[in-house]
Every structure is written in structure tokens, then in C-alpha cells.
Design a protein around this nucleic acid. Structure first.
Lengths: 201, 201
DNA sequence: TTCAAAACCGAACGTTCGTGCTTTTTCGTT
DNA sequence: AACGAAAAAGCACGAACGTTCGGTTTTGAA
């Protein structure tokens, strides 16, 4: 054992971390459009003007890249959807804020590759493994937050309310992305308002 | 031009048609699990103990195979979900029957590869082309049937009702497939009952 | 300024992909 | 029984896949 201690962990600071962040940012975009299986190391490297092997070395396997991509997408989701709602009081009004920021997130332009979670959770429906587990954990945590807020709002059946909110925003995403039906956003807003209107207080 | 007329069109009768049907049946299963892009000619041929080239000759391109697979899936969907509800009177009770047969279809065992339409419609969110068009047309037609029945049932806003029904069954599918949450079926049934309970008559 | 570690590259691997061409087998009709 | 079309197989191709490896550049601390 060397006497000298490591000052930093590899990949935490320095140039490598910046590259890794750039890779994952682009990976989320690509995976939103092509899926986590369609996410290709060669394509990713070409987009970022890196070599395949140089990019590959950051993760060691495609599976690790996929899992890291799921983590990055979860972080982006928190920043875009959860955080903006954090300054409204917990309960019904925060649920309303989350729903609004989620719809805004979906509607944030067709430039973005669509909802990462809609694509990937359908993709890993029947594909067991660590990647699926990572996706499922992230979605479960998102649904759990909905449920927690529903409980704080005094909902009679928080799990049911969370499920319905989840279904309605996912449905809007699906209708908009596949068929360009923007009316779905309006229907979703109405459904959310109705679901939250039943709450006490 | 030959004087003799063709007695049958190729692929309509005879051995070829049977093979083609077997291919498409398996293709729907595979695509439900792996997606329409993950659907591979080599894998399909190996499963059916055919040669790649022999199978390929039936379609001429992978894209044609994908489109034919979408058509076969639509046929299966009609048989499993629409047809069982055809002997109940149009309107609210048929909507109820469709909802029930759809949930039963989703719940028909984890052996099946999950809902074809959930997987593929998410997959082709942001992937323009004939395959996406075929998927979108099928989903639109399914949603249109919901809307038609909602109108016959006297719904105030048939499009909105159709959307909510669609979202709730898709959401149940997603929750069950990804996280094995069977409660979603119950929540979906309750939501359907509530949505249809608002109907006049 | 030195030097080891970190970051990155280029080339190659074995495999699988979709797709052509050519040949053989199967099968209904005469 | 023989013929011709349909069906399936055999073989090969270029490209892209994930991955490995040896070498080169870049970086940051001593």
C-alpha cells in the first residue's frame, strides 16, 4: 500500500468527469428517440466527435452506459419537473404544480426526443436485467412521490390517485408523440383538475 | 402475355400463405417483447426453423415485414378485444365490455410479450416513416372506435372520454408490465366504471 | 520540470445485421 | 409421369455492432 492518499476519485473531478457528463447528456437525448437498446456507442461517439474506444472506456460495457444514462435522465427529470414545484406547499397544490411542469416538460418542443421514460419503460417491459431494474426503480420513485403528495393532500386512496395522475400524463405524452394530437394536453389538464378537485380542503 | 390466367394470387392460398401466417404470428410475439426494431430476421428464422433468405423472400424488406407485423397485431387485437364485445349493445355497455376484454387481454398471462401497442407506439414516437404511420393509424383507429362508442353513449365530450379510457388502460399496462403492480388493474377498472358512470341513461 | 496516471485514439476481433443472387426442393396441374 | 411455378435454401456481401488491446497524448500534482 502506498503511503500517499488519493486526492480525488477518478471520474469525479477533472476532464474525465466533464466528458462523461457530455456523453450522458447526449445519451439521454439519443435514448429518448432511439431507445436504450438503439443507443449505440458508435453513434454516440460520432455525435460527440470522440472515438468509440475512448468513449467506451468511460463505462466498461454498454450495460453500464445504459444504467448511467438512466441515472442522468432521472436527474434531468428532477430538475425539469420536480424542482420547479418544490416552492409550492406540499399536498394538492404541489401535485398541481408537478402536473403542470410535467405537461410543460412534455410540450417543451418536438426537438427533444420525447419522453425518455415513456420510451424506455415500454422498451424494458419484458426484458429483465439491471437496466430494466434501473428504469423501474426510477419510475417507481416518481410514482411514489406522486403518492406521497396525494397522501399529504388527504386523498382517500393515494395509490389510486397517483396511478390516475400517472396514467393521464403518460397518455397525453403518448397521444401527442405518436399522432401529434395536442388536444391530449388539454384533456390531461382537465383530468388532473378533476382528480385534484375531489380532494378535501 | 400468357393465355392462361393465374388461378390464385401468390401468397393467398397454398403453402406460402400458411408460412407467412406462421411468420407473422411469431413476429407479433417477438415484436411485443423486443420492439419492431429489435425484431430480427435471423432470430425470427431461427425460431421458425427457416432460413433467413427463405423468410426474407416473403416480404422483400425488413420494413415490409414490420408493416405486415403491425397489420397482424391489429387483427389479433380485434379478435381479442373488439370482437368479444360485439354482441353487447353499442354505447356505454359496449365500452364497458371493451374495457373488460382489454384488461383481460393485458392480464392474459406474462407468457405473452406484453402489449404490442404500448411497446411499438412508444418506440416510434420520434421515428418517422411508413412503420410509424402504420402504428399510428392502428392506434388512431382503436381510439376512434372508443370515441365512436362514447358518442353513441351520449357522452358530452366523446374525444375526452375516449382519451381518458385510453390513458387508463395504457397506464395499467405500463404499471403492470414494468413493475408487476397488479393493483393497477383494479384502479383501471374503478376509473373506467367512474368514467362510464357519468354517462346519461 | 518531471513523471505517473488518466484520457483518448486507431485498428482489429468475432458476430450479427439486412439484403442480394443462384440453386434446389416442393407441389399443384395437366 | 412430367412440367412449371412457387417456396425455401445456400452462400456471400458490406456495414455496424460491442469489445479488446497496444500505443499516444494530455493532465495535474510533486
Amino acid at each position: 500500500m502506498s503511503v500517499e492518499t488519493r486526492t480525488v476519485e477518478p471520474g469525479e473531478r477533472g476532464k474525465g468527469a466533464a466528458t462523461r457528463a457530455a456523453i450522458l447528456s447526449r445519451a439521454v437525448d439519443l435514448a429518448s428517440a432511439e431507445g436504450l437498446e438503439g443507443l449505440t456507442i458508435g453513434r454516440l461517439a460520432a455525435d460527440l466527435e470522440l472515438s468509440k474506444s475512448g468513449l467506451f472506456a468511460h463505462f466498461g460495457s454498454k450495460q453500464e452506459l445504459q444504467i448511467a444514462t438512466v441515472g442522468e435522465a432521472a436527474k434531468q427529470f428532477r430538475v425539469a419537473v420536480i424542482d420547479p414545484a418544490m416552492d409550492t406547499p406540499e399536498g394538492a397544490s404541489r401535485l398541481r404544480a408537478i402536473g403542470e411542469s410535467y405537461l410543460a416538460y412534455l410540450d417543451s418542443g418536438p426537438n427533444s426526443g420525447g419522453c425518455f421514460w415513456g420510451s424506455t419503460s415500454a422498451e424494458y417491459d419484458d426484458r429483465p436485467g439491471p437496466v430494466r431494474d434501473a428504469v423501474a426503480a426510477a419510475v417507481d420513485s416518481w410514482l411514489g412521490e406522486l403518492e406521497r403528495q396525494a397522501r399529504l393532500a388527504g386523498a382517500a386512496e393515494p395509490e389510486r390517485l397517483a396511478f390516475e395522475l400517472f396514467a393521464v400524463v403518460m397518455g397525453a405524452n403518448s397521444r401527442y408523440r405518436l399522432s401529434g394530437d395536442r388536444r391530449a394536453f388539454g384533456y390531461a389538464r382537465e383530468a388532473i383538475a378533476r382528480l385534484l378537485g375531489e380532494l378535501p380542503g
